[in-house]
């Protein structure tokens, strides 16, 4: 069974290549473009890992992270923040809210793939 990855971002131009990238690495991929949609998809799709943007319409990425972490059912779900917010304090805040990784845009595809694989135990 391939691992499931949920991509949450309101910017389709990054979602498309990311989706393609994840699929090429044999992950089952689903996409959400807002915080609310993300919560819905998490409940239905039950991803193993979420690539989560912070600046989202409605509920922001921090809150999505918080909701995931407060639900014991999703305790094992890995979260990677994928965001343009690059201040020290943004990283610190993301990690304190329970994210496993924090990647600042722009990033190299290889970096994302490597971190996803590592968190899902698919890495070398």
């Amino acid at each position: 069974m391939p691992h499931k990855v949920l991509i949450v971002d309101d910017e389709p131009n990054i979602v498309l290549p990311l989706q393609f990238l994840m699929e090429q690495n044999n992950y089952e991929v689903n996409v959400a473009s807002s915080g609310e949609e993300a919560i819905e998809k998490i409940m239905q799709f039950e991803p193993d890992l979420i690539l989560l943007d912070i600046m989202l319409p409605g509920i922001d990425g921090y809150e999505v992270c918080e909701i995931v972490r407060l639900n014991p059912k999703w305790k094992q779900t890995k979260i990677i923040f994928l965001t343009a917010k690059g201040r020290d304090v943004d990283v610190a805040k993301g990690l304190v809210l329970g994210a496993d990784e924090y990647i600042i845009k722009p990033f190299a595809n290889a970096e994302v793939v490597s971190k996803v694989k590592k968190l899902l135990g698919d890495g070398p």
Binding site: I59, D60, E63, E66, L70, D88, A92, L97
Partner: peptide, 19 residues
């Protein structure tokens, strides 16, 4: 914490939601 200090205020009870 880096170029910041963080000040934690903790209490026993229900956590505060981001909402």
């Amino acid at each position: 914490s880096g170029s910041y200090v963080h000040l934690d205020l903790s209490w026993s009870g229900k956590p505060l939601r981001g909402e």
